[in-house]
């Protein structure tokens, strides 16, 4: 199974240092790993750095992969696009990068499967420009999935989705990771989702990792206080799952 580890990774935009000394343990395939942290902490930048789309020092170790650098797929946070393409074409396009003009039937079958799995096959022949924000996000997920990555970096994939779609997508991703052994890193703002779906969590604040490990150990009242500046409790719900109950924000000192 594929695995990933970051060693002393940093990232810079021009001369501006955005990330420094990011070290993670081995990020395992076959599960979801949450990447959390406040706005502008550097979550998207970590993903771009891993995907080779941002410059910086350090090493991204990828092991047991069959596809080499092709193994990693980054799904950007921004999903807006005004191309005159249908949803189906945009997903096909993602699958066909680097190959010839001819489209095989098997490739189309794969697209149908992915669209069906995300329950967006009724959108297949709508124009990209006519989609709602959430629909766009689902299409973006489809574009990532047809690339059959071994490491999938999803940057806030559920931020525009309704509650039903959020749990559908995260549940689906979890099943997919378990079945395929894919390593899925998900940047999230909804920490209850992290608690529920992600085995491990990495907390980034101000360009560095401030905590990482099993989600239950990482998402605690103390962390919420120091990183997110909110007064909150992590308690077991009536069914025994841990949930975050937010009480108040902490005024800037």
């Amino acid at each position: 199974m594929v695995s990933l580890a970051l060693k002393d990774v940093g990232a810079t935009y021009g001369r501006r240092v955005v990330l420094s000394d990011i070290n993670t343990g081995v990020l395992k395939g076959g599960q979801l790993t949450a990447v959390i942290g406040p706005n502008a902490a550097g979550k998207s930048t970590v993903f771009k750095r891993i995907a080779g789309l941002a410059a910086g020092p350090g090493l991204v170790h990828l092991s047991d992969t069959a596809k080499g650098s092709e193994a990693i797929c980054y799904m950007p946070q921004d999903t807006g696009a005004n191309a005159v393409l249908t949803v189906y074409e945009s997903v096909l396009l993602s699958a066909k990068q680097g190959s010839g003009w001819k489209v095989k039937d098997g490739e189309l079958q794969e697209i149908d499967r992915v669209l069906a799995a995300l329950k967006i096959n009724e959108l297949a022949f709508r124009g990209l420009g006519e989609l709602s924000g959430g629909q766009r996000q689902l299409v973006s997920i489809a574009q990532a999935l047809v690339r059959k990555p071994e490491v999938l970096l999803m940057d806030e994939p559920t931020s525009a989705l309704d509650l039903f779609r959020q749990i559908e997508v995260l549940g689906f991703m979890k099943r997919l990771a378990t079945q395929s052994g894919m390593a899925v890193l998900i940047a999230l703002h909804d920490l209850n989702h992290a608690l529920r779906y992600c085995e491990d969590t990495i907390v980034i604040s101000d360009g560095s990792v401030v905590a990482s490990g099993p989600t239950h150990a990482v998402v605690t009242a103390d962390m919420l206080k120091s990183v997110y500046r909110v007064e909150a409790r992590v308690e077991a719900c009536s069914r025994g799952r841990p949930v975050i109950i937010v009480d108040d924000s902490i005024a800037l000192g």
Binding site: Y88, D112, R113, A124
Partner: peptide, 8 residues
């Protein structure tokens, strides 16, 4: 699924 392929 078949419909998607066919329509494409």
């Amino acid at each position: 699924g078949i419909e998607g392929r066919g329509r494409y």
